[in-house]
């Protein structure tokens, strides 16, 4: 079935101690490995070894890992990437701790993507046999797992084509200049399954990370997350609010190094045969922030 999900986000942080406090104590991720200058985390509802990697030194994205269903899927994606004109290299098992072999390439947007087929399964606290609904002693927000990311690219159209041709993604929503066939593509929200988006791409400087997001259950979880951010003095970019695009409920905020995070709940089920929702510039404020209906300058200018 090709790409199942975004499996990990690997980001740089200026101060690892502060970052650990944020991701472990405020977000409630579980630390699974500490290598000194790199720390690995997973959410309570994730069974693979890690979904977030923090690396000390700088800010912004190191790379994303995308997980495929079967080892054969790697070969298929490698071939499609080569056909698309990307330079693909093989990575061996263990290059990323507890992660299988796979491939690595740099996207036309100058982000590094890895594709792998398995990670060491460490399971969850609730287990799989007659499981409880959630672990009793979650910390802070207690996010269940990684959800999606938004990256910036000078040429959104090429990225959309790459994600379609190489990853088998399809677009669920788009922002474009007009409804005309030759309209300029400003942003696209893409997925491989029923998740409303796994990766979104917005026009902007190459290689930049706009945010990566954790999933939450519903509105009240989002409100509670915002309360905890106030308690822990986490700067909020905007929210709690809703996105017109995806219909998701959200808070955007910044980690201690200034990387933007999001908690995201809801969003409707995606299907490849569902007609794509298209937003045009006169409604972009409402599309991004459904209640404020205006973009804030920070949302458009801050990236790492």
């Amino acid at each position: 079935m090709g790409i199942m999900r975004m499996g990990y986000a690997h980001v740089r942080v200026t101060d690892l101690a502060e970052a650990k406090h944020h991701y472990a104590s405020t977000m409630g991720l579980y630390e699974t490995l500490d290598e000194g200058n790199r720390v690995y985390y997973k959410g309570w509802d994730e069974w693979d070894h890690h979904s977030v990697v923090l690396e000390e030194g700088g800010v912004g994205l190191v790379k994303f890992g995308f997980k495929v269903d079967k080892p054969e899927d790697i070969d298929e994606i490698e071939q499609k990437a080569a056909t698309f004109g990307l330079t693909v290299e093989r990575m061996s098992a263990g290059e990323n701790p507890e992660v299988s072999d796979g491939i690595r390439f740099t996207t036309p947007s100058e982000h590094v993507f890895e594709v792998y087929h398995s990670q060491t399964v460490i399971g969850t606290e609730v287990g799989t046999h007659n499981p409880e609904s959630f672990p009793r002693h979650l910390v802070g927000v207690g996010v269940p797992g990684l959800d999606h990311a938004l990256i910036l690219a000078e040429d959104v159209g090429t990225m959309q084509q790459m994600l379609t041709d190489v990853f088998g993604f399809y677009a669920t929503e788009r922002v474009q200049t007009t409804l005309d066939d030759d309209a300029h593509l400003i942003a696209t929200w893409m997925t491989s399954n029923n998740q409303i988006h796994q990766l979104a791409v917005l026009e902007g400087p190459q290689g930049r990370l706009h945010h990566f997001a954790f999933k939450l259950g519903d509105w009240s979880d989002v409100g509670r997350a915002a309360d905890l951010m106030s308690m822990d003095d986490v700067p909020i970019d905007i929210g709690p609010t809703r996105h017109g695009i995806t219909r998701g409920q959200t808070v955007y905020f910044f980690d201690p190094s200034g990387n933007r995070n999001e908690v995201f709940a809801g969003g409707y089920l995606a299907y490849p045969d569902r007609p794509v929702s298209v937003w045009t510039p006169e409604a972009i404020g409402k599309g991004v922030f459904y209640h404020a209906r205006e973009l804030n300058e920070r949302f458009m200018t801050v990236s790492t």
């Binding site: 200026t14 700088g58 800010v59 980690d255 200018t301």
Partner: peptide, 30 residues
């Protein structure tokens, strides 16, 4: 004002007199 956490550089302002120091690590890219 951007991230308020030293990551984006949006809040850079020209210092015309006096001196400032940084107690937290600031990325060279910022």
């Amino acid at each position: 004002v951007g991230c308020r956490r030293g990551g984006c550089g949006i809040c850079k302002i020209e210092l015309t007199a006096g001196e400032v120091t940084y107690e937290k690590v600031v990325a060279e890219s910022v």
